[in-house]
Design a protein around this nucleic acid. Sequence first.
RNA 1: GGGGCGGUAGCUCAAUUGGUUAGAGUACCGGACUGUCGAUCCGGUGGUUGCGGGUUCGAGUCCCGUCCGCCUCGCCA
Length: 595
Amino acid sequence: MRTHTCGELRADHEAQRVALCGWVHARRGHGKLVFVDLRDRYGLTQIVFDAEDAPEELVDRGGRLPLETCVRVEGVVRRRRDANPKIPTGEVEVVADALEVLSETANPPVIPAHEDELPSEEVRMRHRYLDLRRPAMQRMLATRHRITKVARDFFDREGFLEIETPVLCRSTPEGARDFLVPSRKQAGMWYALPQSPQLFKQLLMMSGCDKYLQICRCFRDEEPRFDRQAEFSQIDLEMSFVTREQVLDVMERFVRELWREVVGFEPGPFPRMSYHEAMERFGIDRPDTRYGLELVDVSDLAQKTDFRVFRDALAKERGTVRAIRVPDAADRLTRKVLDGYSKFVQEFGAGGVPWTKIVAGESGPGVEGGVAKFIAPIASALIERMEGEVGDVLLFGADARSVCLKALGELRQKVARDLDLIDESAWNFLWVLDFPMFEYDGEERRFYAMHHPFTSPKSEEIERFLGAETGEIELIESIVSDGYDMVLNGNEIGGGSIRIHRQDVQKKVFELLGISESEAHERFSFLMEALRYGPPPMGGIAFGLDRLVMQVLGIDNIRDVMAFPKTHTGQDLLTGAPGPVDPEQLEELHVRSTA
RNA sequence: GGGGCGGUAGCUCAAUUGGUUAGAGUACCGGACUGUCGAUCCGGUGGUUGCGGGUUCGAGUCCCGUCCGCCUCGCCA
C-alpha cells in the first residue's frame, strides 16, 4: 500500500513518486492550497494539496480531512520552499495527486497532535489505542523494546538461556497477596499467578541450565503506587557457580551497556554501601546520593539537654536523635514551611520536626529560632558536629530509631525536592549490600524474610545462623544476608541475592520464620527434595523493567511506560476488566461468590 | 482500610457571596483565503455540571450518600 513511511523522505528523494499511509496529524488550509501533516509510527511528512498541481476537487477533499482520518496519499516528492527544521522530513513535501480515505474517524477524545493539553488519564486509558498514537507514547514503546533487546543481546553474548516458567503456580505463604485462579479439574484447588519466577529459576539452576534469563510478567495483588502496578515486568536472571562479586559484575556490565546504548551515557563503577550505612546516613535502604542532607547522629549531645522532646525520645527503646543540616536555607525554610514539615513527618509516625537556624553570634556561630533555647548548652558542639555555617537550618528527628530514620529519610527527600537540590542530569547508580536476613515484627512477634526465604546468609554468617534459636531475637536480627539491591537516583531498579543451596540452611530459614515443618513440607517439599540432589551454588537478580523504562525516559508514572496499564483500583478501563462471568463458569470452577 | 486533590461541551478549562439564557479555547460543521508548519478571519452545532438524595424562592456552587481518576499512609518477601 505504501512505498515509504512518514519518517523516511529526505531531499534526495526529490522527484520520486511515492505512496504514504497514515493518520491526519494536522491540517492547515488556505482554500486552494492545503497542507496536511501525515503521521505514522516513523514520523511526520507534509502533504501539500495544491490547486496549481492537482484538480480542485482533490484539494477540496484534502482540506476537509478531519484530524485522525486514516488515509493513503500518492504524489511526488519535492523540496519545500521553506524547510521546517523541527522535523527530520522537513526539507521535503509530497505533492498529492491521489487521496484515498482508508477509514473515517469519529471526533477523537484524544488528539495526538495536542501534546500540550493531554486529556485526563481516565480518558487516555479508556481510549488507549488513541493515546498510544501520540509520538511520545510511540517513543516509549520503542524505548521499551530497545531495552529488552539490549538485555536479550547482552545476556545472549554472556551465555544465558531464555527459558519460560509457568504462569499458573502454587501459592506461596509469605510475600505479597496472590492473584488466584480456580482449578476446574481439581475441585477446591487454586493456582496463584507468580509474584516472581523465583523458585523456578532456582530449579533451573538445579537442572544445570547454569545461566537463565527471562523477561517475564509478575503479579502482586497489593495497593499500587506511582511506580507499582499489580501486573508488572521483570528482567529475571540467575547464575550457577557464582559468588556475589561475579553476579554484581555481570549485572553492572549489563546496566552500563544498557545506559550506553539507550541513554548515551556511560556510568562508572557503581559505588557500594551496606544496608546499615544507607539507613544511618540516608534513613532509607535506597539512598538518593545526588544531594547531601545526610542524617547525623546527635544523640550523645541531645542527652546533655533538658529538652523534653529529645529526652523522651532517648528514653524510648532504641531511642535516638538525628539531625539534618540544610545549607544556606534560613530564608527559604520559613516558619510556615517548617510547620508543614512537622505535619509531613507525622505521616510516618514521628511527632514533628524540631528545628533551629544557625546565626552569627558574638563569640562565633550560635542558634536562633525554633528550639534554640532548649539546645543552647550544646549549640557550639552541635554546630561543629554538623559542620554548620551561618544561614544553615538544622532539622531534628527524635524518636525510636526506626521511626526517626524513616521520618528523616522521607523529610530529606522532600527538602531536596522543595529546595531544588537535585541534580537532574546525574545518574547515581549504587549497590546496597549486606541486608539483614530477617525483620522482626514486634506486634506479631515473628520474623519476616527481608528479601525472600531463599536468600542465603553470607558465608561467614552460616555457622552463627545455624546455631540461632527461635527466641534469640537480637542474634537473628543481626544475621546478614548475601542479598543486593541496585539503586539509581533513589529508586530500586533491581534486587537479588545468592540463594540457599543447602538443605539444612533452608530448613533453618523456615524454622526461624515460624513456618512449621509440616507447612514447609506441604508448600516446599519439592524444593527441599530438589536440594537433596546436588544443587549448585547460585545467585541472581531481577530488574524492574517498567522502572528501568521510567528512569531511561525520565517518566514519573508507571502507567506511562506500559501499553495497557490498569487504574489505581486495578481496572482496565479499555476492556472493562475485571468483569462479571456467567454463573455456569463459576459452577464449573467450583466457586461461589460472596459479593 | 485512613487522609488529600479532582470530575462542568468530544477534549482542556472558566463561572464573584448561592442569583439573569452555564462561558472560552480547541476539536467538529459551513464560509473566505496559494506557502502553511499552533495558519488566519467570519459564522454555526455541541451541556443529565459523574450519579442519587437533601437544604433553599433559587444549587455547577452548600449538606449527606455514592461512583470514577490521581496522589499518599498502611501494604508491597
